[in-house]
Nucleic acid binder design. Structure first.
Length: 413
RNA sequence: CGGAGAGUAGUUCAAUUGGCUAGAAUGCGUGUUUUGGGAACACGAGGUUGCAGGUUCGAGUCCUGUCUCUCCGACCA
């Protein structure tokens, strides 16, 4: 991609009303644009990051047997009335509207009810189970107060998976596989070292639900962490009884601030019973399907990554989610030799399907190009300049390092 | 939803007690110079001071309403 063709620009100043680090950096570097409080547009660079995150999660969900699909944003009121969650007193984040004929509809803040209802058409027999489906959906939530930049918006991208199993044992097995898939996802997303499996309040069916909490000051949760055992307890269920039950020692737990990046939840048969999702077992008995719900906040993960990986110059993307791997700079576009060499490098990388952002701008100062490169934060910077050619080639520098070396074309990849 | 604060150029901010043609930086445009860390100079464009109403000889400034934004709290299945 040629930077000269990219419409989004870096900027020196950011709107004063944006205080969160993630949104400040993402706006400054030209990844997102704020539409209104808690609502952000994702520009070409930002979208590439989202797609990278989605792809990692997609691969992990596929590994446990998930099938990708996509549900609707418009939802029927009746379904949510069956579970008593249409009422604004029970769910305070609804966006609601009306069809022209006055039929009330809701905008999807979750898809648990619609998917459970939809499965009534497809799950009739024990032979139809299990079913694991997931989607990447824009969720709409009428938050009373949006905050923390892209980490808590009114419109955000979420990966949600739903499991339909024929017994608690079968559910349990899938649940644990998914837990590992989640941990693996966060590892691949660059958050592995600071993301912990966390016991949290569970609702009616189970004592706990499980969250994946990433340590960051930008978070909104407090957890008590046992680093050795790699598990944590959310403040909301932190009691001596729970500590003992989990075989932990209160004295060795570390209190840390975290952001919830994922959540997995067992519904048992409660929701199936409410929405009438039953199957016939091999003895002809009618039984409720066992449900599980699993979610990863895609855009929140992006925000957390920015919060954690940056310095005073800008973002430092983990390689797995960086919009491009290489940031190629033609530092002296007025010099025909330099330009020819830079174009050669660009062609070489492009021909080999290697992701590269090529700063080919001719009317921009050297300092601005170098600063933009630090701000955007791609993993590897390649500079072609009069000086680099004198030294024998291309200057290669990692974003997270101060050292650089001179390399030739064939050494880049 | 409770509490607090703020809306002036694309952006960041000024503007004395209510008083001159609402300024500066940055960004943008043109030109000259410059070239390894957001370069220098010159010229230029850019505003219904969020919106509506009111008080006044006179309102960015005071009053009323309204919209929006931000922060703290509550909420976050």
């Amino acid at each position: 991609m040629r930077y000269s063709k990219l419409f989004s620009k870096t900027r020196k100043d950011i709107p004063s009303d944006e205080v969160s680090k993630n949104a400040q950096l993402l706006i400054k570097a030209g990844f997102v644009n704020k539409e209104m409080a808690g609502v952000y547009a994702y520009l070409p660079l930002g979208l590439r990051v989202i797609e990278k995150i989605k792809q990692i999660v997609r691969e992990e969900m596929n590994k446990v047997g998930g099938l990708e699909f996509i549900m609707t944003s418009l939802q029927r009121k009746e379904l949510w009335e069956k579970t008593d969650r249409w009422n604004d007193e029970n769910v305070d984040v609804w966006f609601k509207s009306k069809l022209k004929n006055d039929t009330e509809v809701g905008f999807g803040w979750s898809h648990e009810e619609p998917i459970t209802d939809m499965m009534r058409s497809f799950i009739k027999s024990y032979k139809d189970l299990p079913v694991y489906v997931y989607q990447f959906q824009t969720k709409l939530r009428n938050e009373l107060r949006a905050k923390s930049g892209i980490m808590r918006g009114r419109e955000f991208v979420m990966n949600d998976m739903y499991s339909f199993s024929l017994s608690n044992e079968a559910h349990e097995e899938f649940y644990n596989k998914t837990k590992d898939a989640y941990l693996n996802s966060f590892k691949r997303l660059g958050l592995g070292d600071d993301t912990f499996f966390t016991f949290a309040s569970g609702g009616a069916f189970t004592q706990f639900s499980h969250e994946f909490q990433t340590i960051t000051d930008a978070g909104e949760d407090i957890v008590y962490l046992d680093r050795e055992k790699q598990i944590a307890i959310n403040e909301e269920v932190y009691t001596t009884e729970v500590v003992n039950q989990l075989g932990l020692n209160r004295d060795t737990l570390e209190k840390v601030k975290t952001a919830e990046v994922g959540n997995i939840f067992s519904f048992g048969s409660t929701k199936s019973e409410q929405l009438d999702l039953y199957f016939t077992d091999n003895e002809g008995n009618s039984k409720p399907v066992i449900l599980g719900s699993y979610g990863i906040g895609i855009t929140r993960v992006m925000g957390v990554i920015v919060e954690k990986f940056s310095d005073d110059k800008g973002i430092i993307w983990p390689e797995s989610v960086a919009p491009y791997k290489y940031h190629l700079i033609n530092l002296n576009p007025e010099d025909s030799n330099v330009t020819a060499k830079a174009e050669e490098v660009y062609k070489y990388l492009s021909d080999n399907n290697i992701e590269v952002l090529f700063d080919d701008r001719v009317d921009v100062s050297i300092g601005e190009k170098l600063n933009d490169s630090d701000l955007i934060g791609l993993p590897i910077r390649l500079v072609v300049s009069v000086r680099s050619i004198e030294k024998g080639g291309i200057e290669l520098k990692r974003r997270d390092s101060k050292e650089f070396k001179i390399v030739e074309l064939k050494d880049i990849v």
